[in-house]
Simulated scan of single mutants.
Amino acid sequence: MTVPLSILDLAPLVSGGDTRDALRRTLDLARHAERFGYHRYWVAEHHLTPGVASSQPALLLGQLATVTERIRLGSGAVLAGLQTPLAIVEQFGMLDALYPGRFDLGLGRWAQRRGAAYTEAPDESPGEPRTVDGLLIPRHFPLASVFSPQRLELMRHLLKQPGANAADLDTMLGDIETLLTGPYADEHGNEARAVPGEGADLQVWVLGSSGGESAQVAGERGLPFAANYHAFPAKVLEAATAYRATFRPSRTLAEPWLMVSADVVVAEDDATARRLAAPYGVWVRSIRAGGGAIPYPSPEEALAYPWTDADRDLVADRVDTQFVGTPAAVAERLATLQRVTGADELLVTTITHDHADRVRSFQLLAEHWPDHVS
């Protein structure tokens, strides 16, 4: 059986465009993704980012459901620390009530306290780049270096209620599971039911970027797990190993189910693919500089960017692990990623300045993928 391909979309703005344009492109891409045969279409959650329009996954997924019929739709990921379990279950329960059996509730840690059983932080040392059976594992980029303390404080001020303290990920997943199966009861015997939400036919996923708490909780709860190669490639093998090592069979899964993400740009020839991917480094630099992603530049704007050695070092891990080229070349690299990680499914993301180029990239990949992995 061919390893499924799915899509992660950030609803990116491009230079010269606006939010309406970005969201229209996302709706159009979802329609094409369904026609091309992709398995899932996930949207991210990013806040206070000038170049990304996907800030409210549940709202956007409701719109995507109106323009598609069969493709699974999901969040990659809802930031669990910014909402209560009840709010999350109600949002996705409403989606399922309107469009039954089509939604994935993907959850990721943000602004949450670490669970008592996961006090050891994963190794954040950069390490040295290496190649593992054909897959590049670059130096690690520490996320803590992206935002200044002042910007983090601003984000917390705007994203969290004063005094709110989110539960750890394992506790939140337990509450979500209880609300979905219902009823929820406290220690005094009081019951509460999520309406909509209780009985919703959702697939619950956990997303993570290392072998830390997210991977371990996903494994211990027997949930499917998505490991993040496209944004944190240095930690993908660590994440996959931790997930499998902690996996316990559950009502959801008898065996681990791992999805791995990758950033790709596909075109009919290498030169065209490289030109379309040229803005990627500039865009990643804007994220790593701490201000959030800028609207995606054009190839011409990228060509004029005044690169320094420090800039190149800042984005090297992302640029070096972006899969760029012809359909055959990119499919071969994705096959290597799948083989080395043992992924059961791949989640691909693509950004180009021109929408037609982005649609064409996904089309070419879908057409060539079945010939490479089975």
Rank of each mutant, 00 (worst) to 15 (best):
V3D: 03
I7T: 03
A22P: 01
R25V: 10
A30I: 12
A30N: 09
R35G: 15
G37T: 05
W42I: 14
V43M: 05
G51M: 06
V52M: 02
Q56W: 04
Q56E: 08
L60E: 03
L61K: 13
V67L: 15
G81V: 05
T84M: 13
P85H: 12
L86R: 14
L86M: 14
V89E: 04
D96E: 05
P100F: 01
L105V: 12
G108V: 13
R109I: 11
Q112E: 15
A116R: 15
Y118Q: 08
A121F: 00
D123Q: 12
L136E: 15
P138G: 12
P138R: 02
P149S: 14
R151M: 13
L152E: 12
R156S: 11
Q161V: 11
Q161T: 11
A167L: 11
D170L: 07
I176S: 09
A200N: 09
L202V: 09
W205G: 08
W205Y: 13
S209N: 10
S214V: 08
Q216V: 11
G219Y: 04
E220P: 00
G222S: 07
P224C: 12
F232A: 09
A234S: 14
K235S: 07
Y243R: 05
A254M: 12
E255S: 09
V264W: 01
V264E: 00
V265K: 03
V266A: 00
A271Y: 03
L276F: 05
P279M: 04
P279G: 06
V284P: 00
I287D: 00
G290D: 09
Y296L: 03
P299W: 02
W307Q: 12
T308W: 03
L314Y: 02
F323T: 02
T326N: 05
A328Q: 10
R333P: 01
T336R: 12
A343Q: 10
A343I: 07
D344A: 13
L347V: 08
T349R: 02
A366Q: 03
E367N: 11
E367D: 10
